[in-house]
Simulated assay, not measured.
Amino acid sequence: MAPSLVRAYVGLGANLGDGAATLRQVLAELRDTDGILAVAASPFYRSAPVEATGPDFINAVAAVDTDLAPLALLDALQALENRHGRQRPYKNAPRTLDLDLLLYGDVRMEHERLSLPHPRMRLRAFVLLPLRDLAPEMVLEGGRIEDWIGGIRDQAIERA
């Protein structure tokens, strides 16, 4: 029996190099990744770093239909980060590419490598605004996306 497809959401960001070009390339690479059958992307946004310093980020969210298990999808995302020169010299360092698994269907999990849903996603404009573009009726932790956006209006973000 073939595994069923799950809709997962992935946050994309880059603030080193040409972030928009990197995100376009990574979206194409996601489409070519074994186990990912479809990819839809939000528009790109420019946002100031949160709890970090450095240049502005280019951000987006991708909806992916996958038959990969959560940790296998995380491995695929981290392989893409590594391919794009991701370094982790210190927490919240500027990065060539950042891919965060935000949601994986209705799965809730706590693992040393992965928490689902992503624990800070509802606090981040660079996640909520592009996520709203893809799934405006989505409910996160008992509230509509629009309800959560009301709490992050002070974060600097604009369409790129």
Rank of each mutant, 00 (worst) to 15 (best):
Y9E: 00
T33C: 14
E110R: 14
D98S: 07
A28V: 08
G35V: 11
D106H: 12
T53M: 03
L12G: 04
G143L: 14
R144A: 15
G35N: 09
Q78H: 15
A63S: 15
M138E: 13
E146Q: 07
E141A: 12
D65R: 14
L27K: 00
P3C: 01
P89N: 06
L116A: 04
L12Y: 04
L5I: 07
L68N: 03
I58S: 04
D100F: 07
R86L: 11
R46S: 08
A28C: 10
A8I: 12
A28D: 14
E146I: 14
M121H: 05
A2I: 11
L128H: 02
Q155N: 05
G17K: 12
V6S: 11
A79E: 13
L116D: 04
R153P: 00
R88H: 02
A2R: 14
L5R: 13
L102I: 13
R31G: 13
V6D: 00
V64E: 05
A156R: 13
A76F: 09
V10W: 09
R46Y: 03
D98V: 04
Y9G: 02
D56A: 12
R24L: 10
E110N: 11
P94W: 05
P117C: 06
L80R: 07
E29M: 04
G105E: 08
D32N: 13
D106P: 02
Y9P: 01
D32E: 15
H84V: 10
E112R: 10
A14Q: 04
G17V: 11
Y45I: 00
A79L: 12
A156T: 11
E141T: 01
E110Y: 02
V107F: 03
L80W: 12
A135I: 03
L102P: 01
R153H: 04
S42K: 08
G105T: 07
V61H: 06
L30F: 09
Q87C: 06
E141H: 09
A125T: 03
Q78C: 01
A38K: 13
D18Q: 09
E51I: 00
R46V: 02
L71K: 09
L77I: 07
V61N: 09
A41Q: 12
L101F: 09
T66Y: 11
W148G: 01
L128T: 11
V107Q: 13
S47Y: 02
N59G: 03
G85C: 11
G151S: 13
R122S: 01
L77S: 07
A156F: 00
T96G: 06
R86H: 06
L128G: 04
L16I: 09
S4I: 10
M109W: 03
L102R: 04
T53P: 00
H84Q: 04
Y104P: 00
L101K: 03
R86W: 07
D34N: 11
L37R: 12
M138L: 15
T22P: 03
V107A: 15
V139A: 09
L99Q: 11
I157E: 09
A21W: 05
I36A: 03
V139F: 01
G142C: 06
S115R: 15
V61K: 06
D154T: 12
